[in-house]
Write a protein that binds this DNA or RNA. Structure first.
Length: 249
DNA sequence: CTAAATGTTAAGCC
DNA sequence: GGGCTTAACATTTA
């Protein structure tokens, strides 16, 4: 479920719970003060990249769905114990499964750099560019997955953005011409919003051009697939269509 | 049935 | 302590 756009969908679904007061809280997450939650209203529901945040008067709850996380709203998941379950005095419940739940003390605006979230109103392309220019040796396949630069971008978005821009995943950030680097920043957000619309229409997969694919849709030759970069994530690319920008000529 | 995958974090080791 | 590697987590799909 979990790249940035999917979290935006969760945020929209959870929005009606803003202002409701927690009646009961439980779950099998460790380190969560479930006893302290009843009586606290949800002040706001927010997201930062892949983080789902519920702001309460005394603390905030942070849910990260990781790779396999899921949620149910106003119902429970069959045969699963929630990591976090909240029910409300006004009715309704939010249940989260197979996820990481943590508390955050203090103001959320101090805890997060909102300008790094590609889905956020506060997104600042200039800030991303600055971070990229500070790391010229980084591979673009790693740069797009760096949550401090492109919070919310995941492996699908990474593969599709690189193909769309015809950039080889093993290009280094510093070798990209300035206009190409600006395009990278722009498309990281642009593609993420298209992802959001496709996801809402249950038509995400049909828009994938290279992710999980075997043939290049532009030139019909076989795509390459390998686990690249620091994180060794699955990468799909076309050796003919995607140019490898390298510092060494 | 087995493997792999939209992801992060903590522990362990130089 | 930094920086890197590895394991751990745990569900669904191919």
């Amino acid at each position: 479920m979990p790249e940035g756009p999917s979290l935006v969908i969760l945020k929209e679904l959870a929005k009606p719970y803003e202002g409701r007061t927690i009646a009961k809280a439980h779950g099998n997450s460790k380190g969560i003060p479930f006893d302290e939650l009843p009586g606290q209203p949800i002040i706001s529901v927010r997201t930062w990249g892949k983080h789902f945040l519920m702001e309460l008067p005394l603390l905030s709850l942070r849910v990260h769905l990781l790779m396999f996380g899921s949620y149910r709203i106003d119902e429970e998941k069959d045969g699963a114990s929630p990591r976090l379950s909240l029910s409300f005095e006004e009715g309704g419940e939010l249940n989260f499964y197979t996820c990481s739940v943590k508390t955050i003390d203090g103001d959320l605006d101090d805890a997060y750099d909102w300008s790094a979230d590609v889905m956020a109103d506060a997104w600042k392309p200039a800030a991303a560019l600055k971070k990229l220019r500070a790391a010229p040796d980084m591979l673009v396949t790693d740069a797009l997955l760096d949550q401090t630069i492109f919070s919310g971008v995941g492996n699908i978005i990474k593969n599709e953005v690189l193909f769309r821009l015809r950039i080889h995943p093993l290009s280094t950030v510093g070798a990209l011409p300035a206009p190409k680097l600006r395009e990278l920043v722009k498309q990281a957000r642009q593609y993420s919003f298209e992802f959001l619309e496709w996801k809402k229409a249950f038509a995400l997969k049909q828009h994938w051009l290279v992710h999980t694919k075997r043939i290049c849709p532009r030139c019909n030759i076989a795509l390459h697939k390998a686990h690249l970069g620091k994180t060794q994530r699955r990468t799909f690319w076309c050796e003919r269509c995607q140019k490898r920008y390298s510092a060494v000529l």
